[in-house]
Design a protein around this nucleic acid. Structure first.
Lengths: 191, 191
DNA sequence: CAAAATATGACGATCGGTCTATATACTATG
DNA sequence: CATAGTATATAGACCGATCGTCATATTTTG
């Protein structure tokens, strides 16, 4: 396929945005790092930078969703599934030398109302993840409302843990928080 | 004092960085919004943009620390103190129309290794807050180690809740997560 | 008044994202 | 096989924005 260049652009974009934030990455950076020629960008992404970023972010979101889905599916108790996902996040953090975190957080914090499309995609991603947690918790016996509240807490904890891990260059934090959250889930379910 | 301009610059900088991230704010933005002329910046802040940002962020950190200190001090149970702080954060969110969140998160996500000074200040702020939680939990009877783990979880939850609230334009999320975390604390302390 | 402190906006080198014009590869058809 | 036509890919010019500097006002202070 001829879209080798395209793929490289997307990967590099995702990587760099996670590293330096939405506004911290220039097209020049992306082009240089991905070794792509300048003019190719508007051929592959007629929508310009925003289109490129949107697609790159989307792929990051989908990957995260898939990992989460697997973690929850292959666990008998929701607490175990959540724990596994936090662990996976921690591994990804160390593997990338603290370059990768949440694919949407940098964009939420960088563009409140800059781009409605990007913001909507971020919102959808968060909703999707939270919904997965909720379903698992419902299956665990929690009430609909309580499951929603706990699910939000899980999402928030992970989001925050990723930031802290980045800041301290210490992926252990993610695992610690994950264990603590798993505890909360266990207590909530068995009551 | 002649530092009226200086103060305005700092406030505007803090505000804009929270709004659009570290790299999303240009000096022109700051100057225009604060109504200051270009050259004044390098008189008040010879260190340029980085010095300005560092000082602005520092003031944001100190304000947050003070509010947290008060919340924890004027509560008989650590869970209540934490709850109050989450509530205060939610109010600040609505008051600023989702402009203000955590003063350090946007910088952590925008500059991994861009500026060592900034990164160190962020780390120190997170440590300070976490330490405050830990002390309150110790006073509540938790073991030193467990207190640290729970403290990290609290910090992470708030950090994440702020992002979610921003993304969904819904400060309620912060309160919800706060209540859930307070629950976790209560359970942890009374065991 | 003299001197120090502060304010001002114009300047230029560099970098930002976008676009038009051009080149290359592939396909179809006589 | 030759040629025209189309899809794919590249190159580089364009112009506005950005940031730090500086020479020159203006205000404050001793």
């Amino acid at each position: 396929m001829g879209n080798e260049t395209r793929k490289r652009m997307l990967q590099t974009t995702l990587r760099l945005i996670q590293l330096r934030g939405l506004h911290g990455v220039s097209l020049n950076d992306i082009l240089e790092e991905s070794g792509s020629p300048r003019g190719s960008l508007y051929f592959h992404f007629p929508g310009g930078k925003e289109a490129l970023v949107a697609e790159a972010m989307q792929s990051g979101i989908e990957e995260a969703s898939q990992v989460l889905r697997e973690c929850l599916a292959s666990a008998s108790h929701p607490a175990d599934g959540v724990k596994a996902f936090f662990q996976a996040a921690a591994e990804e953090m160390t593997r990338s030398d603290y370059g990768f975190g949440c694919p949407v957080a940098p964009i939420i914090l960088d563009s409140p109302h800059v781009s409605t499309k990007l913001a909507a995609a971020c919102r959808a991603a968060i909703d999707e993840w939270t919904e997965m947690y909720r379903e698992a918790l419902l299956a665990g016996g929690l009430s609909f409302e309580r499951a929603g509240r706990v699910a939000n807490t899980i999402t928030a904890s992970l989001e925050g843990a990723l930031i802290m891990a980045r800041s301290h260059q210490d992926a252990t934090l993610i695992v610690t928080v994950g264990d603590e959250v798993a505890d909360l889930i266990t207590l909530a379910v068995n009551r």
